[in-house]
Simulated assay, not measured.
Amino acid sequence: MSAHAQADVSRALAAGALQGGGAFTERCHAQLREAVPGSRPFLTTSCTDALEMATLIIGLNPGDEVVMPSWTFSSTANAVALRGAVPVFVDIREDTLNIDPVQAAAAVTPRTRALVCVHYAGVGCDMDTLVGLCRDRNITLIEDAAQAFGATWNGAPLGGFGDFGAFSFHASKNVSCGEGGALHVNRADLVQRADLVWHKGTDRSRFDRGEVQRYEWCALGSSFTPSEATAALLSAQLAEAAAINRARRCAWAYYAELLEGAGSTAHLRLPHIPVEAGHNGHIFAIRTLDQDACERTLEAFRSHGIDARTHYRPLHSSPAGRHYGRSRGRLPVTDAVTGTLIRLPLDAAITRTEQEYVVEILLGASRSADRRARASAQGSSRA
């Protein structure tokens, strides 16, 4: 924790009123409005809460359908299933691992209320196509921007394209307060309802402004607001967000330089960034030739004390996904990614020496896997 963050948290504690909605919450809201101009942010305890808040605002009902990629965290689908609605899983693009707009369009039915796009690894989805699709089909667009704070599409911030943008400030994210999130409401006609939902379904804001003598329960809502101590920590991190993202992008670029310079593309697939996308360096994910190569590479990392990992199991093939949701057709890209993806260690403090060591181990393991694959193919051909 930086000295600035420690000082802010100490001030919040000294103030005594630790419930949410105070001065540090408002400071975060101001910083978030600056990050996504024209948006109305609501601080939450997690991105999970932000997504659940969005489904409450639009009044998602049992039997409604929401299209989303299978390649995402469970929270994306939980927010839908908790309302009795059906997550409809579609495949992702081979290059970015983001939702495939063609597959998303094909999954829309008369029951579809919304589409959730997930900006995987802080790389923007094809927002031009998705915004047009949702406008033409009259469905809500929710950006799951959990990994994408500070990232852009055609120079505009992610989280500001859809009707809603949901961010995460979990400990695993670039900007973090341990546990935290925010929902950005990008439609003026939904702000008042969002305020009711955020205040546990009450018109507490009107009471605070002196417009009514007592507040009352007006709609479904829940407890989404983090404490002032959490908001104080987040505010300090938001002030450093640009520097954090810059450092991570530099580390991301150095991985790319090392791997491309080593000619690794023959046996590894490197991440792809569309020209329209300004990423935030959240994840540097490589893909191996096959699942065996992935497992052997992960074992090589473990044996050298390197914390490199794969990622989540797709929702469509998980127990809850099969129970609460359904897939639209086959999802071959998603199925392939789950057995071949590895995230390399990356944060704002990683050194070039550390990165060089990671790449050294990675290249040794991947070349060994490539030799085994060729030897196996030659053996098969002789047989």
Rank of each mutant, 00 (worst) to 15 (best):
L196P: 00
A12Q: 03
Q19S: 12
S368R: 14
Q213W: 03
A106P: 05
L51D: 03
P314L: 05
G181M: 01
T340I: 13
F284M: 01
L298W: 02
A377S: 15
S366G: 08
P62H: 05
S366M: 11
T152N: 06
G181I: 02
T140Q: 00
L183K: 05
V359P: 05
Q19A: 12
A23V: 15
A121G: 02
E52L: 08
T152K: 09
A114K: 04
L238H: 06
G329C: 11
R249M: 13
G278V: 01
L51A: 06
V185K: 06
E26W: 06
L362P: 06
G210M: 04
L133W: 01
R371P: 05
P274S: 13
H323R: 15
A242C: 05
L298R: 12
H119N: 13
V333S: 11
H272Y: 15
R111Q: 14
R352C: 08
G155D: 12
H311A: 10
G16T: 06
Y324P: 00
H279D: 12
A12S: 11
N78W: 10
S222A: 15
S70V: 13
R206Q: 15
R343W: 01
I286N: 02
R371I: 05
T25V: 02
A5C: 13
T72Y: 03
A5V: 13
L233K: 13
T44M: 06
G122K: 00
L341D: 06
Y120D: 05
A308F: 05
E216W: 03
Q19M: 11
L238D: 03
A156K: 15
R214I: 12
D347V: 10
G165E: 03
N98A: 13
W217I: 14
G155R: 09
V359M: 07
G178A: 09
G159S: 12
R249Q: 11
V108R: 01
R249I: 07
T288N: 04
P87C: 07
E360H: 14
V358W: 00
H4V: 12
G263Y: 05
A285T: 14
H119K: 06
R382T: 15
S264K: 04
S368V: 02
R11S: 10
S168E: 06
G20V: 08
V80E: 02
T129Q: 11
T45C: 14
G63A: 09
T334I: 09
R206N: 13
Y357Q: 15
L43C: 08
I142R: 05
A145K: 01
D203T: 10
T76Y: 00
S318W: 00
G201M: 07
C218V: 14
G180D: 11
H323N: 09
L268D: 02
I350C: 10
A14D: 10
T55R: 01
L115Q: 04
Q147M: 12
G281D: 04
A266V: 11
S75T: 14
I350E: 08
Y357L: 12
L196K: 01
A14F: 03
S366D: 09
D292Q: 14
F73I: 12
H272P: 01
E360N: 14
R214W: 08
G124V: 03
C134Y: 04
A229Q: 10
A236T: 04
L344R: 09
